[in-house]
């Protein structure tokens, strides 16, 4: 038996580290996390691996003020649904931001952080969080109009 979390994190490392999902070549829809079957095309679908650019906007968000033990050190923290430029959404923390500045529509980019520790002696799960785009992230602060980002 594997130590808690080890295999379950390991088998998702590519997806979590690099925001790798898939794209259906039949219908052009992007999926994250990667899916085994395109729900639009089913058996006609052709899913190819796709690494997302890691840019998007905040679709909705909240400030978590009651959290599991692993997140206590970070409280209060911002978690959001992010709409990636490719059109798919995912759930991630927003870091490097003042809570009062977070807004729906805010332009964000992915960064690499610790997601969770499985106890003090357990493994550390790393992966994507998001931060506001700004000069220091190497991105324009202004949102890119929809459709022009590709």
């Amino acid at each position: 038996m594997a130590e808690q979390g080890v295999a379950s994190v390991w088998r998702r490392i590519k997806a979590i580290y690099t925001i790798q999902g898939n794209m259906c070549e039949t219908c052009g829809t992007y999926y994250f996390p990667p899916r085994p079957v395109c729900p639009e095309c089913r058996r006609k679908g052709k899913l190819e691996l796709y690494t997302f650019k890691g840019l998007g906007t905040i679709y909705s968000f909240t400030v978590v003020r009651q959290a599991p033990e692993d997140f206590k050190r970070q409280m209060p923290y911002v978690i959001a649904q992010i709409e990636l430029d490719e059109g798919t959404r995912l759930t991630a923390q927003i870091v490097n931001v003042d809570i009062k500045d977070v807004k729906i529509g805010m332009r964000v980019r992915s960064c690499f952080r610790k997601i969770k520790e499985f106890g003090p002696g357990g493994i550390i799960a790393y992966g994507y969080k998001f931060e506001p785009t700004m000069k220091v992230t190497g991105h324009e602060e202004k949102p890119i109009p929809k459709g022009k980002s590709q």
């Binding site: 870091v95 690499f112 952080r113 610790k114 550390i124 790393y126 969080k129």
Partner: peptide, 20 residues
Amino acid sequence: PGPDEDVATISVEAARNAIK
């Protein structure tokens, strides 16, 4: 460092900048 930053996260951010 933030509570979710360590040598691995700092290294990845720096390396991504270098590759870019």
